[in-house]
Amino acid sequence: MLLTLDNICKSFGDTVAVNNLSLQVPEGVIYGIIGPNGAGKTTTIRMIMNITIPDAGRVLIDGQPATPDFRNRVGYLPEERGLYKKMAVTEVLVYMARLKGCSAQAAKSQVDPWLQRMGLFDYRSKKVEELSKGMQQKLQFISTILHDPDLVILDELFSGLDPLNIEIIKDILLELKRNGKTILFSTHVMEQAEKLCDHVCMISHGRKVIDGSMTEVKAQFGKNSVQIEIEGDGHFLRELSGVLHVTEFNNYLELELSEGVNSNQILKQVVERVAVRRFTQLEPSLYNIFIEMAQAERPESDTSGGGDSV
């Protein structure tokens, strides 16, 4: 195991941010930590980075307590972004890479290809403060991976990025994974997590609620569901035998079927009544699992959530 969290706990005053959390991140995977705001994602990541010291429990790298050398093998993108505003783009990238133990020469040779790939090459001698917010985000992403880290830790990776840049970054992450790097990221955007993760861990109120590979999780929460898009009134769907529950979306409906019901039987019945545009057998979405778990987790009395604790 590259990274192991062993029963870590952290409280801030009376608020328990992380409660007995254990995780195992194998090498060479994309690992997602998901959870609602205030679930303890950032606190967990900060404890991995040794920025926050756990009240109890251990953080192990390759089974050993982390050494200062470990810092050089990690690329860390914190939730709160920021770079030296007065430094030039190239300068700041080289500086940050050198602080990770990269030689000046190695860092410099890496800067231009990355800037080109992220569309920032023309801005390479501009000051950071002259860049737009989105460009600064991309720049900071480059600085996170420029020193070729073995483990990339990204806190709220997708916040503040447009879809185009999300795609670029996703491609880079998949490429890193192919090269044997390990990626750990946190997000509350489930769609993205679902597309990227090999492993997923969901935490809520500082505790782990789901943990496993994406296929395991989906199997565990697998429900017999179909998505259907029809012309006309879909009211009758609720009355069909074998349909447990109907969720209406703007353009389509989702039907949850009883166990053992063949979706073909349902389709046959529907086709007799209305025109069907689309009919898909559904895997459970991480989004649904998330909503379901988060709601189940939330105690009746507590509606405020954990709050964004530092």
């Binding site: 040794n50 920025i51 200062p68 810092r71 990690v74 709160e80 972004r81 030296y84 602080l99």
Partner: peptide
């Protein structure tokens, strides 16, 4: 203060003591 306010500090601390 600059490093604190611009939130570079976290990245710095993940690189140097």
């Amino acid at each position: 203060i600059e490093e604190k306010n611009s939130r570079i500090m976290e990245v710095m601390i993940s690189s140097v003591s």
